[in-house]
Design a protein around this nucleic acid. Structure first.
Length: 246
RNA sequence: GGAUCCGAUUACGU
């Protein structure tokens, strides 16, 4: 079954979810092998990525009927997809369901929820979620912090993003290219190019390699301020670093 | 009792 799982994942990665579904159905119909929780997880992930969260939820019910216990990964996949669809309350319902079934959420599950809550501006609920994580002794990880930094930046609350950065460093989590790129984008969105370049200098100082996304944000920021010369300089830097413009 | 393989989360733009 692992072989089929690997193949199914390949199809999903290649955006050939339909073919993955066909193969999945064939496995069951021809009794080639019984799908396990990884198989279901892979197919659900494919369905979700293709925008079929509802069908993925139906598959969740199907696997239960078939006597395969949904893992936390399976629940997390559904929760993540609902959050991305801004159906965070439905996601919270699934969270309650999994806990009722003694399948306990992990940091990934909560990261998706925090992402969803923040993207709806439900800051208080996001805060509550973090408190709940602490209560469950689930440590925030790099992804949690990055999600928060990005959410604040997108709302123009760069000061709050900066305090998240301080907290993460305090907690011994090392900011990475995503953290700094989010911050840079935050300043660029506000047209604060001096600050954006300051963050850029900081990340270089920490030997964190900027990538094409980092530079795209900077170019966007300079162009917004009609500073084409600076934008061109950044563009030269891209070529210099052998990065490929997207 | 232990190890390994297969699934879930974060940044720009399109």
């Amino acid at each position: 079954v692992s072989t089929y799982n690997t193949l199914l994942k390949g199809l999903v990665l290649a955006d050939r979810v339909f073919e993955a579904e066909v193969l999945f159905k064939k496995l069951i119909k021809d009794r080639i092998c019984e799908p396990n929780e990884v198989t279901y997880g892979t197919i659900m992930n494919g369905l979700c990525k293709a925008g079929n969260t509802k069908i993925a939820i139906r598959l969740l019910r199907f696997m239960e009927e078939r006597g395969c216990k949904p893992s936390k990964e399976v629940y997390s996949t559904i929760i993540d997809s609902l959050c991305k669809d801004k159906m965070v309350d439905d996601a919270l319902t699934i969270l309650t369901e999994m806990i009722d079934k003694r399948v306990f959420p992990n940091v990934v599950t909560y990261n998706s929820l925090i992402y969803g809550l923040c993207s709806l501006g439900r800051w208080e609920d996001a805060k509550e979620t973090i408190i709940e994580m602490d209560r469950r002794k689930i440590n925030l990880d790099l992804c949690t912090f990055n999600t928060l930094v990005d959410a604040f930046c997108k709302e123009g609350m760069v000061e709050d993003a900066e305090s998240v950065l301080r907290v993460m460093i305090e907690r011994g989590e090392h900011p990475d290219v995503v953290t700094y790129s989010s911050l840079i984008d935050g300043y660029c969105l506000r047209g604060q190019m001096k600050e954006a370049m300051g963050v850029f200098a900081t990340m270089i100082g920490k030997k964190i390699e900027p990538n094409i996304i980092t530079f795209n944000s900077l170019i966007n920021g300079h162009c917004k301020r009609s500073n084409i010369n600076e934008a061109m300089k950044v563009f030269d830097e891209i070529t210099h670093r052998n990065l490929v413009p997207t």
